[in-house]
Every structure is written in structure tokens, then in C-alpha cells.
Design a protein around this nucleic acid. Structure first.
Lengths: 313, 313
DNA sequence: TTGACATAAACTCACTATGAGCATAATCCT
DNA sequence: AGGATTATGCTCATAGTGAGTTTATGTCAA
């Protein structure tokens, strides 16, 4: 694969591949995270990488902004796939390389002819929404747990190991639910053939074309992990907002209910936001103060993080 | 770039590219992190991605193991580049896509004919080693600070902003050094033309071919960030080790001195390791207990992490 | 043999962050 | 006016972290 001393002798096609970009673009509307889709919600927007662009990132950004009509606040490369095993339409001998991205946009485009549609991302992963409001629709955790238990039991040799893995990944039998394990959960269900894309029976979430649901899972996982130590939630919020709106947005993304006063404390001791001085009376109760981000602090916090016992002596 | 409704009409070459894999393989020997290189330390091992392999990861793993003679404990995709701006030998019209990986190996291969060489990674980034022992060689922080200060002053319009960025990124003027910002520091120096690869003058670290030093910086940054919340250090350690050996290894990777007793406390309250029962007298002082990892816990800790104010009521 | 030295391992203490819940304030609705 | 509703502030116990000190157990050199 990698030749240290092969300086010559490649066949013509060697090392050449078809390059494709796939974007998972997320927005939050009405406390519901949504993802931009094509083909009636069955695929993420994608297309060939063309050589006219300076870089992957720059080209993708231009394209997204022209499509959505809104600037992309956050755009991050997710993963590059070339797995033949999961890619059905190969055959040509030339590999397809898919470079996937996660992007956050502030608002979704107005629906119009030929416009991409936005779908709630929990349609694809109903089990990932553990907020109180989330009606535990068909395909809830209980059913998944039952199916996975059956799968674990189906191989007497591996069943103990499998059960442990299931419990940990899905927060069962006394384990805590870990909202970051979106991809691990999807992969586990895939392995247990609960996913139509893997030849399993439908029932657990809407399927997508090819690998797209896996890419979306990767994006959700990345976003949920990142939101804890980088102020990415602001990329999705409007210019001014109340603390509850911010909390609801974060809750939508992580799929969990947060503790109100502790959330507020965390936000303001990080000094990420400041009052605008105005209030809003959108809700029934006491009017809430409006806040805005403090871009300077934001930029610094953009890169932070450490928890090592450093010696300063 | 991405065509939603362009179903036909691509030119033949559209979307095709030359795919290349680049690996940053790290090991720690004698408390010094090293990276596998080719071409007399001027390049990371790389080669074309061939279609015979099932997946990127699997192929790279096979290759690395055959080259180093040791299993790769940890292998993670870093980033995929297709930036034309930094790639000198383009010209063909077909883009080159570089998919880079970070790998950790336990020991370095015995030196032999045709064997790849290992170089200390601080040869390429002397300023990243902030341990006490690190003799502040030529090209130390003071010189970099001076050069960057000159660069900041060279544009009266941007100088304030630049100075702030420099201070934050390099931990100057009262700011703390953040060991994770390896890539940001390199990019900043690149922008300030302190890097030969950018047409700057030599002096700050050994240069490498093309983008390779940037890839290495990305790998170091990723590893430093990851070591805080995932037990990756064990992937580099031998089967049994003392706590000080473990600490020295982590220190080598993060380029900082750690607080001894706090480090030990963190390790054992995470329950990642257990005593083997034996002791070693490698050092002059009191013999140290030997430890080994606890694979079961290790696997669970492999995916952890959260710090959100979750509501459990 | 003895003391100087070096390292390991355990323990202390102040301070900060976090989880949980309660109290008070300012609106709207009827 | 009074209840409902939401916002914001405050308390308190507990866990985690930074920074040291103390005690144990070995080697090495005089």
C-alpha cells in the first residue's frame, strides 16, 4: 500500500480514485435539530470534488452558503471513507473516496422549488432523543434492548461479552446513558443487523442511502462531544437569545434535559455571553434578558481544554 | 462542487483524484517521542492508496505492522487534505488527495538496511518541548516570540489583533501555555513566514517535504488532546511498567512536566491499572511496583467523557 | 557499617467545580 | 387580586484538583 522504496512502476490506475464530498449540515428550529437532505430525505447532499477549488473546505463552504443562503458558522471535516465492504456500487475497480463534513448553519433556507429539505435528525435515530418530551415512539429503547439481547444470546460463545458491550453502549442494567456514543450505538445495531442498510429489517429509524446514516451518526457524535468544551452552540443561535433558548438548543443537540440553574451558572462563569440590556416577552412568565456572545472570548475559548496534573514548581 | 441536481454531464476527469496515504507513526524511546521517517528524516512514509485493500484503515495497519514488526495499538485518521495552495508539484490538473493517519507503536524497529529511521519529533518542533530537561536550543521560544512580534508590527492595521493571537497561542504576556495548540502554533509561524516550507528562512526546527510537518503537527496535537480523556498512553508502554515510567512517557508526549503525586492519584482513581505484584530496581532509589493495564476497564474508558449539567429529576 | 542520596508511596489541606434543590422576582391570564 | 408561569439568584453537600509534606525503602560511597 505504501511503498517506501518503490520509486517507479505504478500501474496507470494505481492510487487513483473517485473523490466525493458529503456534507451533514445541521440547524436547530423549534428545539428540533434538523439535517439537510436530498432525495426525499434519503440522502445527504453530496457531489464530486472538482479540481477548480482551492481546498476542500473552501469549496464546500462556498457551495453551502449559496445553497442555504446563510453563512456557515462552523464547518469541520468528519472522516474519509474508502471502505469497499459497505459500498454497494463499486465494481469498476476504481475506488470511491468519500470525504465527509459536518456544518452548522443558523437558519434553514426557506422552502422552495428545488430546495433541499430539512429533516429532524431524530427521525433517523429515534433512540438518540432522551429528552422528556420525546415520545418514545415505536423503535424505542426497550425494543432495541430486546433485539440486542436476542442477538447477544444467539452466539453462546460471545454472549457475555456482547451483553456487556450492549449494556455499556446503551446505558442498560445500571450503566449510565452516554450521549456521545451515537456512532458506537449505530455500529452495534448495524452489527446486530437491526439496520436496513446492513440487510436488517426496518423498524429502527428511517434508513438512508449507502453510508449516509453512518456519516450523520458520526456528525452527531462529533457535535455532542464538541459542545462540551467548545462554544459551538452559538454558531446555531440567532444574534441575541435568552438563556432558556440557548439551553433548549443544547438540549436538542445532546438529546438530554439539562439542569436549569447549573446550566446558567456554567454559561456565565465561562463569560462567553453578555447582556444586551434588552428583554423579551416571548413567553408567558417573567420576561427574560437577552444575551449575545462575546466574540473575543469566544475566539479564545475556541481552543481550550486540558485536565492534566501540570507541575508549575 | 456538490451538485444536487446535476445528474449528468461530468467531464471525464471530474471528481477524480490521486489518492495518497500518509502516516505519522509515533513511539517513545528513552523518554523521547519519535516519529518514523523516510528520506533522511525529511518525509513521513507515504504511498498511493491501492484498490486491493478492503479499507483505508485495514490496509494501513497491515502495512505498518509488516514494516515495524510490531502491532499498531492505535491508529486513527487525522485529516484529508486537498489544498492546492500548499502543494508545489501539482500542475497536472488532477488533484492529489492526501489522507493522513496517526499511529502509535510500542517499540521502534531495530535499525537495519533499508529500515525507516526514527527521529525525535521535537527536532521538527523544538518549541513544543517545555519539559525542564529540554535545553532551550537555538530557535527557542524567545527567538520565536521576537520574530512573531516583528511580524505583528509589520502591519499597523492588524498588529493588535496579531499580538493578541500570538500571546494566546504561545502563552506569552501572562497567558498560559496550552500544549494542545501545536497546529495553531505551526500555522501561525507559517503565516509569519518563519517556516522554510512557506518560503521563510530556516532556523525554527527541521523542515520536511511538502505538508508533512503540518501533518505531524496535526498528529501531535491530536495525541496531546486525546491523552487527557482516553487511555492512549498505554498503547505505547510495555506490558508492565512503573508509575514513573508511565509519567515520563506522558510528559514526553505532552512536552510538560507533570505533578508526581497528582498524576499517580489520577491514574489510580481511574482504576486503569493494577499491580503485578513484582517490583523493579532499575533506578537508584526505592524499588517501584510494577503495574499492568486492566484491559476490561480500558475498553470501557475508551469511550467516556461528559461535563454537562444533566438533570436527573 | 553508616550516612548521604534517590526514589516510591501515602497523606494533608485549601480551593474550585459540580449536582441538587429552594427562594424570590417579574410578568401574564382570568 | 390571585394563580400560573417563567426568570434569576442563592445555598449546601460533595467530588475533583493543585500544591505540598511525610514516611518508607532501596543504592552507593566513604
Amino acid at each position: 500500500m505504501i511503498g517506501l522504496d518503490k520509486k517507479v512502476g505504478y500501474s496507470v490506475a494505481t492510487g487513483f480514485a473517485q473523490a466525493e464530498l458529503i456534507a451533514a449540515l445541521a440547524a436547530v428550529t423549534a428545539n428540533e435539530p434538523r439535517v439537510m437532505t436530498v432525495r426525499a430525505g434519503k440522502a445527504l447532499p453530496s457531489g464530486p470534488f472538482e479540481s477548480s477549488h482551492r481546498s476542500l473546505q473552501a469549496g464546500l463552504r462556498d457551495w453551502v452558503e449559496s445553497q442555504t443562503g446563510h453563512p456557515v458558522g462552523f464547518l469541520e471535516q468528519l472522516y474519509t471513507f474508502a471502505d469497499g465492504d459497505r459500498d454497494p456500487g463499486a465494481g469498476t475497480g476504481m475506488r470511491r473516496i468519500s470525504i465527509s463534513y459536518l456544518g452548522l448553519v443558523r437558519e434553514q433556507a426557506a422552502p422552495g422549488a428545488g430546495q433541499p429539505e430539512w429533516h429532524g435528525w431524530y427521525e433517523y435515530f429515534p433512540w438518540e432523543d432522551r429528552r422528556d418530551g420525546a415520545d418514545d415512539r415505536a423503535g424505542g429503547l426497550d425494543q432495541i434492548a430486546a433485539s440486542l439481547s436476542a442477538w447477544a444470546g444467539s452466539d453462546p460463545h460471545l454472549s457475555a461479552e456482547r451483553r456487556q458491550r450492549v449494556d455499556f453502549t446503551f446505558g442498560l442494567n445500571g450503566m449510565n446513558w452516554n450521549e456521545d456514543l451515537v456512532l458506537q450505538r449505530y455500529e452495534l445495531m448495524y452489527e446486530a443487523a437491526l439496520i436496513p442498510e446492513a440487510g436488517g429489517s426496518p423498524g429502527f429509524g428511517q434508513p438512508m442511502q449507502g453510508d449516509h446514516r453512518r456519516i450523520l451518526a458520526t456528525g452527531i457524535a462529533r457535535l455532542r462531544a464538541k459542545i462540551k468544551y467548545r462554544p459551538v452552540a452559538f454558531e446555531i443561535m440567532p444574534a441575541s437569545f435568552t438563556l432558556l433558548q440557548l439551553q433548549r438548543t443544547v438540549e436538542a443537540l445532546v438529546g438530554l434535559n439539562l439542569h436549569k440553574s447549573n446550566f446558567r451558572r456554567q454559561i456565565d462563569q465561562q463569560e462567553l455571553i453578555e447582556e444586551t440590556g434588552e428583554t423579551t416577552a416571548e413567553t408567558r412568565g417573567r420576561p427574560a434578558m437577552l444575551f449575545r456572545y462575546r466574540p473575543s472570548v469566544l475566539e479564545a475559548r475556541q481552543m481550550a481544554g486540558t485536565r492534566l496534573p501540570i507541575s508549575r514548581t
